Structure formats: structure tokens, C-alpha cells
Computed example of a mutant assay.
Amino acid sequence: MLLDKSIPLTFYVREIRREALFVFLFANLVVLIKLYFSLWTLTIPVAIPTLLGTCISLLLAFRTNQAYDRWWEARIVWGAIVNDSRSFIRQLQMFLGDETPDRQAVIQSFVMRQCAWCYVLGDSLREQGVNERLHQFLSPADAERIAQSDNKPNALLTEHGMAIRQLYDAKLLTDFQMNHLSTTLNSLTDSMGRCERIKRTIFPQTYTFNMRVFIYLFAAILPFCFEAAIYFLDVPLVTVIASAFILIEKSALQLQNPFNNKPTDTPVTTIARSIEITLKTITGFHSIPPPLPAEPYYAL
């Protein structure tokens, strides 16, 4: 997630350098042809790119809005994960009485499994390896068993459920308490499913293709709209205007995929560390990890 800090110009240039270079070279080619072959009469009325630019602006506004909705939904889902994680552990602290054998160890085992779930969910959404996370929070046997699952976050929630069932069978939880814990697990499952839906639902590629065709058509027409007297403005203006449209389109493309391990991502790892700190603090862990340091202008 981009932070409220100064974003280096290289971040923007890196995103559009190829497209901007292509537009720059094409504009130079048009100007050189018009200059050396005296084809300044080959001029297109400026009303045509103006109309096309207006249409592109409307389409980009719609595209950016839809992309931001996907990004914002992902952020809302991870906000719900924070709340449900806290609620889940707090419920266990309230429901498990002092007569529970090894009460502190039982609660802390749930904490470690919940922390593992948060990290593993985020890494899975980013298509990164999760075995190291599993071994960090779980016993070797549990980590190996979860690692063999196709859906590792779901397997961790299943482990939660089985552990709760064991407490219920041991008469350490009442029907009412088990129902509340199951409801919280269902909320976590719902959040996981929403994240997976965002990840797997592809934004229509035809829309992206059409948008780029319109932008490049606009960039191709614009060099023919300048008069001979101001030919020195042709190349820089065409490059800057076209690059602005391309940058907006690229920004929307990044926002619509909030789990791609890029600076514009939803900061799932940072959120998972925040959850870990909170849960370990309220359950008496001696070793509390520090918050993840942010990069110069973004957090992941």
C-alpha cells in the first residue's frame, strides 16, 4: 500500500517507460516526415483528438473507480480479519475457565495457529511459498500435515475447528460457547473466500485491450494536429499527454489486483504482523515481534 509519503518519480517512470518511449519515437517520426517532406498540410482537425480524449477520460474514470472498489473491498476484508482474530482469541480467554488443563498453553496454541493463518493467507494470495511460515508457528508434524493440503489457509481453519471440538468433547465448552466460536470461524472463512474471489475474478481483458487501443489511437492522431509554426512542441506535448493517460490506466490495472506483491497491494503482511503483536500481547507471550518496518514509500 502506498503511504502518505513522497513517491519517487522513478516509480511512475518505471511503470510507463516502454509505452512512453514508443509514443516519443512515433511522434518524432511524424514530425520528421512533416518537416523534411514539407507535409505540414497533412493536418487533422484538433476537434477529433479532443473528442477521443474526452471519451478516453470517461472510460478511464469508470475503470479507475471499478479498480479502486476491488482494492477497497480487499482492505475492508482484511480489516474484518483483524477484528475477528481479536474476537476469536478473546472468546477463548473468556470461555476457558481456570479448571482447563494447561489453559495458557491451549490458548497460546490457538494464537500461534491464528497467526500462521493470517500470514499463510496473505502469502497464498500473493502466490508465494508458505512452508517457512508454517514451520515458524506450528510444530513440525502440524506444519508438514498442513503443507500437504491444497488450500492451506482452509486447512488451518479446519485445525481450529477440530481443536474446538476437542475442548467441547472434554466438557470445557458449553453449547452456547461453541456456537459463538463457530460463528467467529465462519466469519474468518467468509473473509478468506472474499479474498479468493477477488484474486480469481479477472477483470475483463477486452476492456483493457479496448482502453489501450483508444489511448494509442489518440497518441497516433495527436501529432498530426499541430501547425508548422509550433512543431517544436509536437513531440513533448504528445508524449506528456499520452503518458498521462497511460499512467492512469496502469494505476487502475494495479489497483484491480491487490494481491500481486507490488507497492499498491493491500498490506497483508503488515496487517498479519499487527495481528500477531496484538494476540501475543494479550495472551502473555514473552517474545513480542516488532512492527514490520515500512519501505520508503509503501508497506506490504
Rank of each mutant, 00 (worst) to 15 (best):
E132W: 06
L138N: 02
P140A: 09
M112D: 10
R126F: 00
G122L: 04
W117L: 03
D123H: 11
G122M: 00
P140C: 00
V106P: 04
L134P: 08
S139M: 08
F95R: 10
D84W: 12
T100W: 10
R90V: 15
S87C: 14
L134F: 11
N131K: 13
S124P: 01
D142A: 10
I146A: 08
A80F: 12
W117D: 05
Q114I: 09
E144L: 13
Y119W: 01
D102H: 14
L138I: 00
A80P: 05
S124F: 00
L134G: 08
S85Q: 06
L96D: 02
T100N: 05
R86M: 12
V130S: 06
Y119E: 01
Q91I: 13
Q104M: 13
Q104C: 11
V120G: 03
I76H: 04
P140F: 04
P101N: 05
L138Y: 02
C115E: 06
D98W: 06
Q114W: 01
A80V: 09
L134D: 04
L134Q: 01
P140K: 02
A141W: 00
G97K: 13
V77Q: 05
S87N: 14
R126P: 00
R86P: 15
W78H: 12
I107R: 11
E127I: 07
N83F: 11
Y119N: 02
D142G: 04
A105V: 10
F88H: 06
T100V: 13
F95K: 14
D102C: 11
E132M: 03
H135E: 04
A105N: 07
M94Y: 15
D98S: 15
I81H: 03
S85A: 11
Q91E: 14
R133Y: 01
Q136I: 08
A116I: 01
A80M: 11
